[in-house]
Design a protein around this nucleic acid. Structure first.
Lengths: 107, 107
DNA sequence: AATTTAGTTAGCCAAATAACTAAGTATCTT
DNA sequence: AAGATACTTAGTTATTTGGCTAACTAAATT
């Protein structure tokens, strides 16, 4: 029922995982490509991929011995949306404060 | 030097802390007000506030025996900005795919 | 059929996180 | 001056996280 936004932000709180998302934003990729050049053991990296997949930010399917990973747009948009909403509330408040200041300071 | 975006997303990955941000978006508040109605011990809640403050999302100062907490707009915007950037890359890719499909399918 | 490639599973470990209680320190209020 | 209020600090505990190695499976290549 709930939005499951916790694991989403948690997934984004790691540089390895964010860089995977950055890579996948340019298109789907297989595990070994995503792994290339990383300074960590493969099983460690696979755990990061699992965290991403559990958060819903990413999906994957196996083709032969290769696993193709792709980004999932909606959860990314959901996170952005939460932030946007907070900013809207915050800016709405600033607007009201400004109007108040203007009405009380008729120069 | 680096953007310190890790602790930012990490701070947002907890419902208690997000609800504090939601509250503070409507304006500054003191600790006891933010704490009111929460089902956890006060020291536990204070740790959450410390996490928020360490992430830069929030600042606070003490006035007498009361601590006033307020939101910090920039880090919130930085998180939103990262997400927006990913979406831009992603949507740019979708646009190119669509154009490609159009040019290859002249009806 | 043997080897290489691409991931997977299992198990261990250290550090970080989230929670608690108990006890303490300022700062109002009466 | 005493008491209440608003945090603060210290110390404990359980769970989660992020990392590792070793050993394994399945698919493609030679």
């Amino acid at each position: 029922m709930a939005n499951q936004i916790d694991p989403l932000f948690a997934a984004l709180a790691d540089p390895t995982r964010r860089s995977v998302i950055e890579h996948l934003a340019t298109g789907p990729a297989q595990v070994s490509t995503l792994y290339a050049g990383r300074d960590m053991a493969l099983p460690t990296f696979l755990k990061h991929l699992k965290v991403l997949e559990a958060s819903g930010l990413v999906r994957s399917e196996k083709k032969g011995r290769v696993r193709i990973v792709h980004i999932e747009a909606e959860p990314l948009a959901a996170a952005e949306s939460w932030l946007k909403r907070q900013r809207a509330v915050w800016e709405g408040r600033l607007d009201r404060l400004q109007k108040l200041a203007e009405s009380n300071t008729p120069l």
